[in-house]
Amino acid sequence: MNTQEILETLNKDGVGQGITLFEGPKDPALVIPADRLVGVCEHLKSAPSLQFDQCILVTGTHMTEIRDKKTKEVTRAEGIEVIYHVRSLRHRALVALKVHLSLEDPRVSSVASIWPAADWHERETYDMVGVVFEGHPNLKRILLPQDWEGFPLRKDYEFPKEYRGISLEVDPPWPQQ
C-alpha cells in the first residue's frame, strides 16, 4: 500500500478533504491541514482497511524560505513542518503525514491520545523546534534542561554564551599548547 492508495482510501472513506499528496523527489507524504490532523489520524488508526497502529516518528523541521533564483517567487514559505511517520503492521505500510505550521505560532493538536508512542516524540519536537502540541498530557522539555531558552533545531537559533553561570564558549577549558 503506497501513499497514493492511502489517499484514495481516505477519499473513499470521506475524510480526504483538504489532504494533498506531497511528491518530493524521494518519499511521498500526505499533507494534512493542521485542524484536521486528529480526525484523520483517528481514522487512519481505526479504519479496518488502514490500521495504522504504530507511530514511528514525529519530526519537526524549521523550513526556511526558498525563492526561485530567477523569478524571485517564493517556492517554499517559511514555517514549521511537523512530519508523522505512521506504520501499519497489518498491511506492512509506512506513511508520512505532513502538517504545515506558521513559524510565529506553531500549534497543532497532539496525537498522543491516539498513539501513546507519540507522547515522547512530541515532547522532543517541542523541546527542539518549539511546536506546541495542544492537548498533550505532559508537554515539557525532555532532553534539555527545563529552563533552557530557545529551540535549538530552529535554523535561526543562536547558541547561548552561558547557562547558569557555566560558560558555553566552544574553546576548551584546558590550556592549549
Binding site: P25, D27, L57, L94
Partner: peptide, 19 residues
C-alpha cells in the same frame, strides 16, 4: 540530491530510522 527520505533498519534494539 535534494529530497527527503526515511530509511529504517532493524537494529539489535529495534527499528532505527533516519529521516
Amino acid at each position: 540530491k535534494a529530497g527527503e527520505s526515511y530509511q529504517a533498519v532493524e537494529n539489535p534494539r529495534g527499528e532505527l530510522g533516519y529521516y
